[in-house]
């Protein structure tokens, strides 16, 4: 019995998510709200994007994920000139602190996304998000993005609090190749199996979910249903 426990533990430690260092924990930085005014211009105060549909909310996303994206933007692996220019003169230490700051904020649903779907689309969206579609060989969103869709680890983004149009645009980006990740590129594979209606349905359903308070340990994610190159 102890042997089996040990084997399980080994398995867990060997899993790619467990191999990542824990999210960086830093003491609060004084005046961070004002230091981040440049980010708030697009991503909203406290990272809750209210006005700009295509600028995502970043509040409450996993710190490791946000930090990784900052590195990706600065290196041009994610393409956005504005983000790249912003980050060019910043240290990685500061970028970690920025990521931790936004991870510590609370996500919020945008009021206009609350009930924008018709019932059939909402049902389809819920099915994809919570159960997936075996016929299409598409896993449920929550299998990777967590039960509360908050993401986890350095590589899985949270989805709660994102605007419907933003999620739909990102899915379209994965499908067309405008967004990509290391091979095997899970999100590209999944997006290519979805129709336009499916994308709209699942984006609408996710955006309509009220944001619950974060539960402890919620951003620890189990083994993934697919082999994803981005989750190293």
């Amino acid at each position: 019995m102890p042997c089996r426990l040990l084997a399980l533990l080994c398995l867990f430690l060997a899993s790619p998510l467990a191999a990542q260092p824990a999210s960086p924990v830093s003491p609060p930085i004084p005046d961070m709200d004002n230091r981040m005014a440049a980010c708030a211009g697009c991503h909203g105060e406290y990272g809750r994007s209210q006005r700009e549909t295509y600028y995502p909310s970043i509040a409450g996303k996993p710190a490791g994920y946000l930090y990784e994206q900052l590195l990706n933007f600065r290196a041009g692996r994610r393409h956005q000139t504005q983000m790249q220019q912003m980050l060019t003169p910043l240290s990685t230490d500061y970028m970690r602190e920025m990521a931790a700051y936004y991870a510590g904020q609370t996500a919020a649903r945008h009021p206009s996304d609350a009930d924008a779907l018709d019932p059939a689309a909402a049902a389809r969206g819920e099915q994809l998000a919570l159960h997936g579609d075996a016929a299409l060989d598409v896993p449920a969103c929550r299998d990777c993005h967590g039960a509360g869709l908050r993401g986890g680890g350095p590589y899985v983004p949270g989805l709660v609090g994102l605007r419907r149009e933003y999620i739909e645009a990102q899915l379209g980006g994965w499908q067309s190749g405008a967004r990509s990740a290391l091979a095997p590129d899970c999100m590209a594979t999944i997006a290519q199996r979805l129709s336009g209606e499916d994308m709209a349905a699942v984006a609408g359903w996710i955006a309509a979910q009220p944001v619950q308070p974060k539960a402890a340990g919620e951003t620890e994610i189990g083994p993934l249903p697919m082999n994803c190159g981005a989750v190293r």
Binding site: I29, N34, R35, M36, A37, A38, C39, A40, G41, C42, E52, Q82, Q85, M86, L87, P89, L90, S91, D93, Y94, E97
Partner: peptide
């Protein structure tokens, strides 16, 4: 239009930043 941060340096590790106004 583009805003931006000052550089992170030993003397000023956490610079303040200016929001871009190109989209506003």
């Amino acid at each position: 239009l583009e805003g931006g941060f000052g550089p992170s340096t030993a003397g000023n590790p956490r610079p303040y930043g200016m929001p871009p106004y190109a989209h506003q």
